[in-house]
Simulated scan of single mutants.
Amino acid sequence: MTDTKIRLGIIGFGAEGGMYATFIRDGMVPNMEVGAICDILPDKKAGAEELGVPFYENYIDMIESGEVDAVVTCVPHYLHPEMGIAALERGVHALLEKPVGVYTKQAREVIDFAASKPQLTFGVFFNQRTNPLYVDLKSLIASGELGALRHTSWIITNWWRPQGYYDQSDWRATWGGEGGGVLVNQAPHQLDLWQWMCGVPQKCFAKLAFGFRRDIAVEDEVNALVDFGNGATGHFMTATHDLVGTDRLEMLFDKGKIVVENSKTVTITRLTAPEQAISENMSMDDVRKLFTGQLDTGALFETETTEYESVWGQQHATVMQNFAVNILDGTPLIAPGPDGINGVRLANAMHLSAWTGEEVDMVNFDEERYLTELNARIEAEGAFPARS
């Protein structure tokens, strides 16, 4: 560890950029300081003055100023890749907000460019990867203690957004301005965590509802089935119109089960033997006793429940700290930039499946077909340029 501080340039000084600056100012991110602020709105200069750092209205000017060692992109999704490339080609490290891009072709451009600059650090802001709950589950699953994955289901509908939320900006909830709805705005962390723990799916079939309960063009409800290979399957459901909301993740394995409620309460059941062995060796009399509550289940499985608490801001601060020490001493990144394409591909596959009514091959994902379908919707909106 070194006392050197990485000077971070914050591109976009809204709620998110302001939050990161506060964490750094308050000492939550050792080895990092705010080097400069950039925003297209001149009135944001007051925030830079309060921090005592230079202010820029053009992010290229900030990157080339010599005032920053790295940048973080707190801007609309479509801008993340081009800003990342601009920084990296000028020798500045890049931490991109999620998603790393709106579509895989775009995401690959910044990932491939970063690969040509191995001396620079390229990360994606998946702060949930530092959540102790998911860190512990990732470790448990990777250990093989519970055996192979059979099925997983994540219902996460606690993203309720009123119509007024979408009416705040012309770009919000549009194909051309935002690139999608709940899959690209609210759910990217879950799409990443799901694959981080369970593996990257090979196929996807999805039913999406577009403007289902809100006056928007993009998806506000998602139901998707995925195939992980080797017989393992998954279901992902999310929505922005459920006022009460649910957050429940289940992962079933050969030798146990994990249930996470509200991203806080974890119940782990460990079987005393693989489920199929239990099935093969159980007498019908024991089956009767099990179904009637007369069998001591302790001989079959044990269950433990753990409650996790999180400290506000600590996860974001940990990502920035990890990013800084990777630059300084090579400590491995928690969320390397190339990992960002997995969530983008899964969201794209869900869109494409819903648009075409087909199961989508994610191993050989057709990027050009997706882009053609996306551009058709952008052109129909008539408010934003087509993408390439």
Rank of each mutant, 00 (worst) to 15 (best):
Glu57Asp: 13
Asp26Trp: 03
Asp227Met: 09
Ser353Met: 12
Tyr59Met: 10
Thr130Ala: 14
Gln106His: 11
Ala21Gly: 15
Asp61His: 13
His235Cys: 08
Ala224Thr: 03
Thr240Tyr: 00
Val75Thr: 15
Val218Lys: 02
Pro76Thr: 08
Trp175Asn: 01
Ala277Glu: 14
Leu146Thr: 00
Ser388Asn: 13
Gly245Met: 06
Phe125Asn: 15
Ala354Trp: 04
Met28Ala: 14
Glu97Thr: 11
Thr305Met: 13
Val71Thr: 15
Asn322Phe: 10
Lys44Ile: 03
Ala347Asp: 05
Gly313Glu: 09
Ser153Leu: 04
His241Trp: 14
Ala376Val: 04
Glu250Trp: 11
Phe236Pro: 00
Asn326Glu: 02
Arg369Tyr: 13
Arg377Pro: 00
Arg248Met: 13
Ile6Glu: 00
Gln186Gly: 01
Thr121Cys: 09
Ala347Glu: 02
Lys117Met: 04
Gln276His: 12
Gln186Glu: 12
Tyr20Val: 09
Asp215Trp: 04
Glu82Val: 14
Leu41Ile: 07
Glu109Ala: 14
Met350Gln: 11
Lys98Arg: 11
Phe122Ile: 00
His77Tyr: 11
Val360Tyr: 06
His235Trp: 06
Met62Gln: 06
Ser65Gly: 09
Lys105Asp: 10
Ile11Pro: 04
Arg369Lys: 15
Glu304Ala: 07
Gln195Gly: 04
Ala115Ile: 06
Ser116Asn: 07
Tyr134Ala: 00
Thr305Asn: 10
Asn262Asp: 15
Ile111Asp: 02
Ala317His: 04
His93Asn: 14
Glu280Ile: 05
His351Met: 15
Tyr103Cys: 12
Val53Ile: 07
Val72Pro: 02
Gly180Pro: 01
Leu243Ser: 08
Asn58Met: 09
Leu243Cys: 05
Ser116Val: 04
Asp43Trp: 13
Leu208Thr: 05
Ile334Pro: 01
Phe365Lys: 12
Pro132Glu: 05
Ile216Ala: 03
Thr152Arg: 14
Thr246Leu: 12
Ala87His: 07
Gly144Tyr: 01
Gly123Cys: 10
Cys198Ala: 06
Ala224Trp: 03
Arg248Glu: 10
Gly340Asp: 10
Val222Pro: 00
Ala217Pro: 00
Ile24Glu: 02
Glu261Gln: 08
Lys138Leu: 07
Leu51Arg: 07
Ala217Asn: 07
Gly199Ser: 09
Gly52Glu: 11
Asp112Ala: 13
His241Glu: 06
Gln163Leu: 10
Trp159Tyr: 15
Met320Asp: 01
Thr240Leu: 10
